[in-house]
Structures are given as structure tokens and as C-alpha cells.
Design a protein around this nucleic acid. Structure first.
Length: 266
DNA sequence: AACAAGTGCAACCGCTTTCCT
DNA sequence: CAGGAAAGCGGTTGCACTTGT
């Protein structure tokens, strides 16, 4: 990490304003912050300076932790999958980076925001094939969604199938613990009232869930590594057929299990 | 080889929202 | 309920690095 040396060489970062350090963090500061969080947990950021001996304000500490030091952060490049998710969610929500970030565990709002600005802002002028396709998909999805709304949620899951799914999930909980591969994992605050469920009337689109009903979970688990693109294409298709899953089904108390394999955003 | 332009990303700023007293 | 503090969020900046000429 060059920041430490940069701070040392450039001088900025050593500048103090009202007693607070600014600029790039040094490895020693990182160490102090990590130690602080280990001992006291996240939050109370304004206490960090006092308790950890850091000359940084709370805001700076929080940002450093959230964007850089958190152990659950995913390093490395944004994958094509994540890119498509970002595209989708940005089309839906606009610049609500933190909301988008919640659907991409291990990625920060700052990271996504930077990625968007550097990759898609310029692409917006000369659209790439990928972004064009994503937009086309989105349009189709929105059209379909509109149709679905007009149908007044006619295709709700029936309780018998739901019970079978839940029973299978109980059986296979460990098998699918690594599924879905990225986005849904670690998500704690799924809005269970909007969980999508495939269309019962179309065998093509309900394929995945009927695989579940037939006990084909291991295939899904295998897909989590090398075949995740296949799997995620499947998830997008689930969204395409977007049938609202009523809150009554969630009221079974299985939502916490169920949300492990639903689309990572609603 | 030297310079300019472009890119990526960490960090800051200011505003808004949420929490606490 | 009101006001202040803390946390969260999106926008912006600035610098090192990379690429093109």
C-alpha cells in the first residue's frame, strides 16, 4: 500500500486540522483501528480517537473501517456478474450506492460508486454490448413486471408446494449453505414480503424451483463456484417471471432459511 | 525517453437521517 | 416533542499509476 509512503513523502496526511489528522492512513493507524474494533466493536466512532489513541475523527475512522479494513470485504476486481447486478440495481434505484452495496456482500458503496463512475459513466456515451444487453433485459423485465402487476398476483405459490420446499430446505440446509454464490450470502435484511417465486404455470421458468422440489439441491451447490454465471442467469430469469410471494408464506417462520436462496434484492 | 492524458481509488466534504437524552 | 450528537450517504477531490503519443 503506497499511502503510508505517500503520506511520508508528500507531507499531506500529516497535516493536522483542529487536532485531527487527515489524508492517507498509515499501517500503524490501521492497526490501532482494527484493534479498537476488535475490542469495542463497530460504532461509537467518535470514541476511537480517545480510546485507540488515533488522531482521526470518528467519520474518518468509520470510513476507513467500512471501506477498507472490514474483514468481510471482498478484494479484487468486480466480476461480470457483479457488474450486471450493479447495472440492474442502478437502473432500478439510481445512485443509491449503499442500497446497491447491500446486494453485493463484500463490496462497499464507495467501491461500487467508483466502479460505476469509471466504467459506466463513460460507457453511457458509447454503450458496450454488455451494458446494452443489460438495459434491454431490464426493459423486457419491466414490461413483464408490468404485465404481472396487471394480473393481480394471480399466480401465488400454493401452500402445499411451499411446505415441500421448506422441508427440502431443512434437509439440505448445509448443502445450500454456500448458495447463492455471492449476493445473497450474508444479507440479513431481506424484505421477505417481496421474495420472488417462479411462475407455476410455466414449466420452463419454474425449472429451478422444481429442481428444488425434486431434491436436486446438490447440483445447485456445485454451481456455486464455477457455474455461478449459469446460476445467476437463472436468478435473473426468476426475476423475469417475478411472481410475488405473499407474506403469508413468510409467516411460516422459515423466511430466514428461505431468503438464503431468493434473489438478493427485491 | 519524456511528456500528456486517462484511469482507479482512497479519502474528504457537506448534507440528511437516525438515535439518544 | 425538541434539540443535539452520531451515523450514514452521495458527491467530489486529489494523487499515484498506466497508457498513449
Amino acid at each position: 500500500m503506497y499511502c503510508g509512503t505517500m503520506a511520508a513523502h508528500m507531507g499531506w496526511g500529516i497535516i493536522e486540522e483542529e487536532g485531527w489528522r487527515k489524508g492517507p492512513w498509515t499501517s500503524e493507524e490501521d492497526r490501532l483501528l482494527i484493534e479498537y474494533v476488535r475490542l469495542h466493536g463497530e460504532g461509537r466512532w467518535n470514541s476511537v480517537a480517545r480510546l485507540a489513541g488515533l488522531k482521526r475523527n470518528g467519520k474518518s475512522c468509520r470510513l476507513r473501517w467500512v471501506n477498507y479494513l472490514r474483514p468481510d470485504l471482498k478484494r479484487g476486481q468486480i466480476t461480470p456478474h457483479e457488474e450486471s447486478i450493479i447495472l440492474e440495481l442502478h437502473a432500478r434505484w439510481g445512485n443509491r450506492w449503499s442500497t446497491i452495496a447491500r446486494s453485493l456482500p463484500g463490496r462497499t458503496d464507495n467501491e461500487i460508486k467508483n466502479y460505476w463512475r469509471t466504467h459506466f459513466k463513460k460507457k453511457a456515451k458509447v454503450p458496450s454490448d454488455a451494458s446494452e444487453k443489460a438495459k434491454t433485459r431490464l426493459l423486457r423485465r419491466q414490461q413483464f413486471h408490468h404485465q404481472q402487476q396487471q394480473q393481480q398476483q394471480l399466480q401465488l405459490i400454493n401452500q402445499a408446494d411451499m411446505k415441500r420446499i421448506m422441508a427440502l430446505l431443512d434437509e439440505n440446509d448445509t448443502k445450500i449453505s454456500s448458495w447463492p454464490p455471492q449476493a445473497a450470502q450474508g444479507k440479513q435484511d431481506v424484505d421477505t414480503s417481496t421474495i420472488a417465486y417462479p411462475n407455476h404455470t410455466s414449466t420452463e421458468e419454474q425449472g429451478f424451483f422444481y429442481s428444488m422440489l425434486n431434491g436436486n439441491v446438490p447440483h445447485v451447490a456445485e454451481a456455486s463456484s464455477s457455474e455461478d454465471s449459469f446460476l445467476w442467469d437463472g436468478l435473473w430469469n426468476l426475476d423475469d417471471v417475478h411472481v410475488n410471494f405473499t407474506t403469508s408464506a413468510c409467516a411460516t417462520g422459515k423466511a430466514s432459511t428461505f431468503h438464503n436462496f431468493v434473489v438478493p434484492f427485491c
